[in-house]
Every structure is written in C-alpha cells, then in structure tokens.
C-alpha cells in the first residue's frame, strides 16, 4: 500500500493510522507497530527538517514479503540527503561528551535489517527492510 503525506510533523498521526491500515490488510502482528512507527517517524521527520526546499508531499509505501516488511519513503524535488551516511552515535560515551543529533538514525539502524538510500531525478528514496516478530516469539 502507498500513500502520500504533507511535509509537516502534524502528519504523523495520519501516518500511524496508515501503518495500522497496512497491518490489518497484510495481517501483520501488532507487536511490530512500535518499531515500524518509530523507523518511519525518524525518517519522515528528517525529510521534513532537512529537505525543506520542496513543497511536495512525501510518499510512504509498505509491502509485506513473507516475514518482512519493505518500507519505502520517497521525497521528490529535493537535494540529496543520505541518512545512511550519518555518523554513528557512540552510545558508550558519557552524555556530556555526546554530540547532539543522530539518535533517530541510530535507532533506525538498530531496528531494521537493511537501510538503503538512492537518489535519482532529484528524488530521495529510502528503503528499509524490517523483519517481523510474532506475539510471544
């Protein structure tokens, strides 16, 4: 399923509703909702913050392939911004020594099997693969 959302943090509630629709249509166990919401929120809010030159909606596509979800965010008419190249957050450093930012991408890396970026025709495409859990597993 695919849907487009306005480039606005206020669209998050609609995005989470869309995720629930996909879960119902694809029979995805609700235990996965937290992490799917989180990875999509982190990348969507990054696009809103860092690709503000575009006024186009951001498209989110979610497909189930067996025990995995393929999540794709497409942001058109933007300059390149590759979140997969963001520096790693050093979670072992004391708080006072840590640089701000980067935590969202760190969480995306932890919660997904793959995290890829492609840029073509002034369009950023992020593709995530998320392995699904089942209740009690």
């Amino acid at each position: 399923m695919e849907r487009s959302f306005p480039r606005d943090i206020g669209a998050l509630a609609s995005i989470f509703e869309f995720v629930r629709e996909v879960f119902a249509a694809e029979s995805v166990d609700a235990v996965n909702a937290f992490e799917v919401d989180l990875v999509i929120e982190e990348l969507f809010t990054n696009m809103v913050k860092y690709s503000s030159e575009s006024s186009n909606d951001i498209a989110i596509r979610i497909d189930r392939k067996n025990d995995r979800l393929i999540i794709c965010l497409t942001d058109s008419d933007v300059d390149p911004f590759d979140p997969t190249r963001a520096r790693e957050v050093d979670t072992d450093r004391p708080l006072r020594d840590r640089k701000p930012g980067g935590l969202g991408i760190h969480l995306v890396r932890r919660m997904t099997e793959s995290f890829d970026y492609e840029y073509r025709d002034r369009t950023s495409i992020i593709t995530l693969v998320k392995k699904l859990e089942t209740e009690g597993a």
Partner: peptide, 17 residues
C-alpha cells in the same frame, strides 16, 4: 506511555541535563 521516538527522548534528555 505507549510510544516514544528520538524526539521524545530528546525532551527527556534536556530535562535530565
């Protein structure tokens, strides 16, 4: 609390500091 993202954790961190 059912859900928190990095933005929410940021607020907790600011409060903690």
């Amino acid at each position: 609390l059912e859900y928190i993202s990095s933005a929410g954790i940021g607020v907790i961190l600011i409060t903690y500091k």
